[in-house]
């Protein structure tokens, strides 16, 4: 069975600016995939290439095995852009019916499908309202309603919860999980890291147009599982001895040591060795980075490297 999204060496340049730099990514069917990155990292460009709204400079992309330049690739795809712009003279019902028809749904089923979308997103009361009179949150719900038309096989959401209140937030999470249960693949561009951590099966972090980390949120964070030791009387010689004997990489910031042992047992060995060499351990604890810590660290680190390379 074909993967939902496959891209190979996807590159996009705007003049001298590189928006995407050889991005290769595979999103399997039925997973919720989180796509993270700071502003200007190239996330929206990537999404637009998937929908053939932007042409890549190099590389190729396919949805369910169909190259993105073919209209049939978008046949079962729902999309919610980051800044939703709709014909403001239409009513909500007219807008939804327009997209039901554009999605290729049979003429007889148009009304039924539109009603289903109203119900799922709780916007039935907005049917007769003009789009131009809606608040940002309502507009976001209407946008989501058009994205789920026809139970798409792939749902691409660019910042879907930006304008929503906490209830809307929870509704969207519930909706995404329900859709995943029905087999929909969800590609989620978001800045709300806690939300991504709770909802996504896998994530990728994009920075300066390249993927800098990819995997399950727990696994990525686990890579940066370290031991934080606060100790007095530690000299550089002592650190060198511990490092060479236990083969543990240790960083130091004053009295705070950051050790990256390979095994859980190394914590006890480290503690006894510090004591043996004359140091006094005040506290020792395992520390795992949250996705937010990881995101900030990776993005910051990459940005510094990028700047250095440019200089």
């Amino acid at each position: 069975m074909q993967s939902a999204i496959v891209t190979r060496d996807l590159t996009k340049r705007y003049g001298s600016v590189i928006a995407l730099d050889g991005v290769s990514l595979t999103v399997e069917r039925g997973e919720i995939f989180g796509f993270l990155g700071p502003n200007g990292a190239g996330k929206s460009t990537f999404v637009k290439i998937l929908l053939h709204l932007v042409k890549p400079t190099a590389g190729d992309a396919s949805l369910f095995g169909v190259p993105v330049h073919e209209p049939r690739a978008r046949k079962n795809v729902g999309y919610l852009p980051e800044h939703i712009r709709i014909y403001d003279f239409l009513t909500v019902a007219e807008f939804i019916r327009l997209h039901v028809r554009l999605a290729g749904i049979e003429h007889d089923a148009v009304r039924k499908e539109a009603e289903h979308c109203f119900e799922v997103l709780g916007i039935a009361s907005l049917r007769t309202r003009k789009i131009g009179t809606l608040s940002k949150g309502m507009l976001q719900r209407v946008g989501l309603a058009q994205a789920i038309i026809g139970q798409p096989e792939l749902l691409i959401l660019d910042e879907p919860t930006t304008a929503l209140d906490p209830i809307g937030f929870a509704d969207v999470r519930r909706l995404l999980l329900d859709m995943r249960r029905c087999g929909t693949t969800i590609f989620l561009n978001s800045h709300i890291l806690s939300e991504v951590e709770r909802t996504c099966d896998r994530i990728a972090i994009l920075n300066h147009g390249s993927i800098v980390a990819i995997g399950r949120p727990g696994d990525i964070a686990k890579k940066d599982h370290y031991l934080e030791i606060i100790a007095d009387g530690i000299t550089d010689e002592m650190l060198a001895q511990i490092t060479s004997k236990l083969k543990i990489s240790i960083g130091r910031d004053g009295s705070v040591l950051r050790a990256y042992p390979q095994r859980e047992q190394d914590a006890a060995a480290l503690h006894s060795m510090i004591a043996m060499l004359g140091g006094r351990v005040r506290s020792i604890r395992w520390h795992s980075e949250t996705l937010e810590d990881l995101f900030c660290r990776i993005v910051h680190h990459e940005t510094v490297d990028h700047q250095r390379n440019r200089d």
Partner: peptide, 14 residues
């Protein structure tokens, strides 16, 4: 200019 084409063109339309 308004960006309204974006959503329509995300549908299977040439």
């Amino acid at each position: 200019d308004n960006g309204t084409a974006l959503l329509t063109l995300s549908r299977p339309i040439r």
